[in-house]
Each structure stands twice: as structure tokens, then as C-alpha cells.
Nucleic acid binder design. Sequence first.
DNA 1: TAAAAATACTCCATAGGTATTTTAT
DNA 2: ATAAAATACCTATGGAGTATTTTTA
Lengths: 163, 163
Amino acid sequence: MPDAVLPDMNLRHLRYFVALAEELHFGRAAARLGISQPPLSEQIAALEAALGTRLFQRTRREVALTSSGRTLYEEAVKLLLHAGRVREVMAGARAGYAGQLYLGCVPSSLLGALPAILGPHRGRIGNLEVRVTEGHTGGSWRRCATAGWTRASSGSTSRTRRW
Amino acid sequence: MPDAVLPDMNLRHLRYFVALAEELHFGRAAARLGISQPPLSEQIAALEAALGTRLFQRTRREVALTSSGRTLYEEAVKLLLHAGRVREVMAGARAGYAGQLYLGCVPSSLLGALPAILGPHRGRIGNLEVRVTEGHTGGSWRRCATAGWTRASSGSTSRTRRW
DNA sequence: TAAAAATACTCCATAGGTATTTTAT
DNA sequence: ATAAAATACCTATGGAGTATTTTTA
């Protein structure tokens, strides 16, 4: 995975760009975005500088997309939709989260009883963060690789597991 | 096209998140990103706040992805790759740009001679911005819908056309 | 005790706002 | 003359850095 893929160009740039590309009018696009006109001019200019290409042909009469602008519009719409889907996915990932539940049990239950008890509720437990505490003494880490656990532990530490 | 799809969550957040998800160590991830550790902690916390979900399970011993974190990792990688491709596309859109060329001609040439002359060089002219000036008097707009032009104009104004 | 993440603070870059100027018809 | 974008300037937010504290094995 590349690290610094994007020196510039953020999602805001693209949102602003798409709004302007659709309105073809700085004032209206700014209003639609809930900002004033000057910052929009600046952000568009910044995006053009970042991409090294002119995106709009400005005239008093009208604002028109350049060839590069049309290309970016296609891509920007797709990318923004993609970003929107990521948000939705994450919203779903946290859906149903209602808080934390603390359970006390002997360590051996982690292998047998607990999965047996919670297993049937798999569908209602989307994201279960398990924090295992053995007594309150603080012990050493213990391997617990069976029963669907990646690892388990003792001594007030925790593991994550999707049941 | 939705306007404010992302109140928060920008590409930087995702880059930082991916780095940490792969390193599972704030210090190493920060080094890899070329920043120091505290801002990385803050940005991850900000992202978790923005998404309303815990992405990492922190312990002194190790940093581990939560279930939500694993989900986001898949999506974040895809989105960053997508963003990278957009950049590449735009880099291609401006490739070969070397400056501006001013041509003088009579208006009728726009329909006949100019396309005939420039047509063969289509491959070398990726993005041609045409600014048409009729004399220096300033005239009225004129329709010029043939010969592959979307529109043409007079009076020191301009149109864009990919030849 | 030591290693690692979080916190506190400071600084600077940047996004946004208002007012004004420039531009082109 | 006018409508619209650009520019100037100011403010505030937020990202990054250094130093320090907290945490837990």
C-alpha cells in the first residue's frame, strides 16, 4: 500500500469541484455547498494547482468545464460515491452497538461455556470486544488459540473476536 | 450527486489508518508516514470519533484491529487505490501540456481550414483550449455548431474542444 | 522498570468569512 | 453599468511538533 499517494487533492476539493461542475456558477455552487463564493474560488484554484491543469474556463458570461475538467468530473463522482459507500459500510459496522457488557467467568469458560452460550446470539452480536481479566491479580499472557479465538489473555488485557 | 456526503473522514485519515493497521504500532506507523507519534494518535482518535466506532484495541503490548477496524481496512485500501487512480488519470489528462498557442485567423477558418490543419495532429493535441477573438472590436456571440465544435464565439471569449 | 500510547501545549498552515477590486459584456 | 469571479485581509480551526504523563506487562 503506497503511503503518500496524494500530496494534495482531498475529498473536499472534489465535493466542491463536483458542485461547481454541475452548477457552472461559483455563486450558486457556493450556496449549494453552504459556503461563500471566495473560498470556493480559492479551493478550485488550489485543486487546479494540485493537479497542474485548468479545470474550468472562466468567463463573465459563464463557467465551462475544460477537457480535463470533464475527465475529472467523471472520476470525482465515482470517487465520492465510493467514499459515501465506505461511510455507509462503517455506519453498518457500528450499527447495533449499545455499549459494553462485563461478564465474569473462570478462564476455562472462554473455551467452552461462553462460546456455547453466546454462539446462538451470533446474529445479534455484530462486534464483540472481549476483555479478559483473570481475578484482579494480574497474571501472565496465556495462549488460547482454540474455539475460534485468535488469542486470549489474562491480567486485565483484551482481545477482539467477532462471534 | 449528494453534497455533504462526508462531514468528516478525509483521505489523510484513511492513509494514516491504513499505515497503522499494517504496522500495528503507532511509533512505526508514524515513522513510515513521516510524522511523529502524537499527531497519529490524535488523527486515529479523530477518525474513530468521526465514524463513531473503535477501530483499534490498544494495549501496551500490542495494537490490534477491532472488527470494525478490519472492515474499514478493506474499504480504505480500495478507496485509496481508487483515489490514486484518479490522480493518475488526471496526470494523463495534463500530460503533454506545454503552454499556450495563439493563432490568428478569419472566423470562417474555424469551420474549414483550422480543423483540417489541426486534425492530423489530434494525437499530439490532447487538450486544446480555443479562445476565439474576432478582431478586437468585441462582437456578438455566434453559433458554430458544426465541424465538431460544440460552440464557437466572437468578442474575446472562449470555448473548449478536444480535437 | 521500561516501552508505548495518550495528553498538554505551542506553532503554523489552511479554510472560511466580509469587503473590495477587477473583468468583460 | 452590471453581474460575476478574483483578490485582500482577518479569524478560527486543526494538523504537526516537542515535552511530559499515564499505563501495563
